[in-house]
Design a protein around this nucleic acid. Structure first.
Lengths: 203, 203
DNA sequence: CTCTTCAAGTTAGCATTGCTTACATATGTT
DNA sequence: AACATATGTAAGCAATGCTAACTTGAAGAG
């Protein structure tokens, strides 16, 4: 029935039928265009509803942002998992690919990326968010541990995994903010990743 | 005369006399308290002027932000330089200290730190800003090159310096955003820094 | 000392925003 | 068919960024 309604959308349905999702999508676009200071009113315009409608689905702007961020984190996690799965276990290219997928996501959707890790205003201790972050992190820990041939709970391995995470995270932000030292603007990213990977994960 | 006026401030001077600087200071506090979405109106209240006054000194909120960021970057650069100078040239502790000073600044003034590197909205190609960034980066490059015993323009050294920068930058942001993987919340930061330093700058 | 000038304040106001309250309508259940 | 509920609208509030037009007072010229 919802499917039927979706098809008829546009025919002056009083009830939108899919507002929650379409709002999230509209906000995602806005965030991508203008950064995290998106305007709810503008999102409403794009979804074709009144400015009061969102508050039937979300408590306030923070909760909207939370929804957008959760979706984005899920997409990013899947992208990273796919990148890791692209190489067989133990292959050193797994790690480089994993890091590259992180940076690629940041560059492909800079507004979202910045929003995911910036603006933690409304949700300081959000369980779903921290859990999503942990799951993503777990991917890195697994791959690193596997590469080092130790348990995924090995503290040393996890420390190295975290260091690698810091590196790609920092590199991503510096790229986005165009805060790259000007003599670095045309670095060979692959070479950089390889160098760091080799340094952090000795054979 | 300006000094005289400054002393008398509070005695209903029509002309404030020091508004530009006091606005920047008020905004700095606000950014620290509430992040980059500070309210100009609130800053005006704190400086004791009308909400229209700032526009005699700044074109818009982006220009205000720019002023605050420039001051912050200067402070941070001096802190880093001081940290580097705390150890003699060649001492490996110079690098650890430099990195630590970066993270310390981020933790001590999280709002400012986030604002410095986030919100690049109004100033995409600001010369003063990129130059300030480059100068700070130069400190790291110098120390790293010195440690490796090569020229400060050595590409290999600069790549390693950049990798280290990425690492501390990423770690800082992850700390601020409390996006640390939960099993990492009580890491020994000194150990982490040492590990990364050793890995990236082999003897 | 007075006159003029101009930087640096003010007040008033506009358009926009986030969010609330009260009302309207469609949908699914009984 | 009637009702309850979910989901939309309309109207309105206080706050915001910014502008326009007016006011003030300090500094320099005669």
């Amino acid at each position: 029935m919802n499917d039927a309604k979706s098809l008829v959308r546009g025919k002056k349905n009083y009830h939108h039928g899919d507002l929650r999702d379409q709002l999230l999508e509209a906000v995602r676009e806005l965030v991508e265009e203008q950064g995290p200071d998106f305007s709810i009113a503008e999102a409403c315009r794009r979804a074709g509803v009144s400015t009061a409608a969102p508050y039937k689905h979300f408590r306030d702007r923070h909760e909207i942002m939370r929804g957008v961020v959760l979706l984005a984190m899920d997409r990013m996690r899947r992208a990273m998992q796919a990148a890791a799965d692209a190489w067989p276990a133990g292959d050193p290219r797994r790690i480089a690919g994993l890091g590259q997928s992180y940076v690629d996501f940041a560059r492909a959707e800079p507004g979202l990326f910045r929003t995911m890790f910036g603006a933690t205003e409304g949700h300081e201790d959000d369980k779903a968010l921290t859990r999503a972050g942990d799951e993503t992190c777990r991917i890195v820990e697994m791959v690193v541990a596997e590469h080092l041939g130790v348990s995924p709970d090995d503290p040393e391995a996890n420390l190295r995994a975290y260091a690698l995470w810091c590196f790609v995270h920092g590199h991503s932000f510096l790229c986005l903010d165009a805060k790259l030292p000007s003599d670095m603007s045309l670095i060979d990213e692959g070479m950089l990743m390889r160098m760091v990977g080799d340094a952090m994960l000795p054979a």
